[in-house]
Design a protein around this nucleic acid. Structure first.
Length: 333
DNA sequence: TAGAGGTTCCGCCAGG
DNA sequence: AGCCTGGCGGAACCTC
């Protein structure tokens, strides 16, 4: 995943009208991801998205595998949506209808946010909204879309790309990561974690889809290495307040440092240091949201050697300063 | 902001 | 021959 260019924080949730597009040949899994995250009632929360399904074509819509969808709203309602979710488009040779493209362009022009899942980025690229921006799509389609839209910087080593008002996600399930990212932006890490917990998934995955491309079946000894790695990650998570180096992690995983780095990258698509930094920052976000601890205390409890290091790392990864982040979160409640 | 010192990452290569 | 592992060295990065 990439660093968000802009992380406006929970205040952004003031505009919570969200539209999920539905069309014939709809990819139901991606549609269901958005419905599960955004449309499900969250009784414990004061604020949540007001979600509706918007039909691109008239009449009952047919998703893949024979599912029929009767959407309550039409394209005209997109003019009132603060956020529009575009599930995977069914056919890269067959562009989205001009009415939809125009509605999406209008929405973007007035500042609405767009989130695409999988090949949904084709629709956004076709609308010209990704020109000059980084974006991603399913790794199967990356080359095709690069040729079709040379002005778009399609990357294939991430789960999603946050370009502020436009978020594009990679292959199908990475839509979950992108949707949770948006929830995190709007309502904070605690709410995003709660949603993830209810869905029984990890609140945040590191690495990209590169790790899923042509991955061979693991040999028994590799599975054993994978188990060691998981156990080491749990071990590290249990002592985030302490200084841990790659050498110690490798020792715990019963591997040489060099092999540990290889296994780590194969499994998580990132480096131990970067992973550890994100784990520390994730804990810091939770503490900023849920406790009144000082920044100095949080810095120490999250394993940062100095407050300065903590502040710089937090700003780099989250996009805003610690104080601003806390203020924005408290301002929501 | 610059620079020193430490750490991490990765390409290369030899050995099993 | 092909694959995996681990050591080495240098570049890049981080921290103070």
């Amino acid at each position: 995943m990439t660093m968000p260019k802009r992380t406006p924080g929970p205040k952004e949730a003031q505009g919570t009208t969200l539209a999920i597009l539905a069309y014939n040949h709809l990819r139901c899994f991606e549609y269901a991801i958005a419905a599960e995250v955004f449309a499900l009632k969250r009784p414990g929360l004061d604020q949540w998205y007001r979600t509706s399904v918007v039909a691109v074509e008239k009449g009952a819509l047919r998703g893949i595998a024979g599912i029929e969808i009767n959407a309550e709203k039409s394209i005209a309602s997109l003019d009132f949506a603060h956020t529009i979710v575009v599930p995977g488009w069914h056919d890269l040779e067959n562009p989205a209808p001009a009415r939809l493209i125009r509605a999406i362009q209008r929405a973007h022009a007035r500042g609405a946010r767009l989130l695409s899942i999988c090949s949904g980025s084709y629709v956004l690229a076709d609308a010209g909204l990704l020109d000059g921006k980084r974006a991603c799509t399913h790794w199967l389609f990356t080359e095709q879309l690069r040729c079709k839209f040379p002005k778009v910087d399609f990357v294939n080593d991430v789960l999603y790309v946050d370009e502020g008002n436009i978020i594009t996600s990679a292959g199908s399930a990475s839509g979950i990561d992108a949707c949770l990212h948006l929830v995190r932006r709007d309502f904070g890490a605690h709410v995003a974690n709660t949603v993830a917990k209810r869905m029984v998934i990890a609140p945040h995955r590191d690495g990209g889809q590169a790790q899923f491309v042509d991955t061979p079946i693991r040999l028994p000894e590799q599975r054993s290495a994978h188990r060691n790695l998981n156990s080491t990650l749990d071990w590290v998570r249990g002592k985030l307040d302490q200084q841990i180096g790659v050498a110690e992690m490798a020792q715990h995983a019963l591997m040489s440092q060099r092999t540990f780095l290889r296994r780590f990258h194969e499994s998580l698509g990132t480096t131990p240091k970067l992973w550890l930094m994100r784990e520390r920052i994730a804990r810091a976000r939770m503490m900023l949201e849920q406790t009144e601890a000082s920044v100095a205390d949080i810095s120490a409890q999250c394993g940062f050697e100095s407050m300065e290091t903590f502040r710089v790392a937090f700003k780099r990864i989250v996009g805003v300063a610690t104080g601003t982040y806390r203020q924005q979160f408290l301002g929501l409640n």
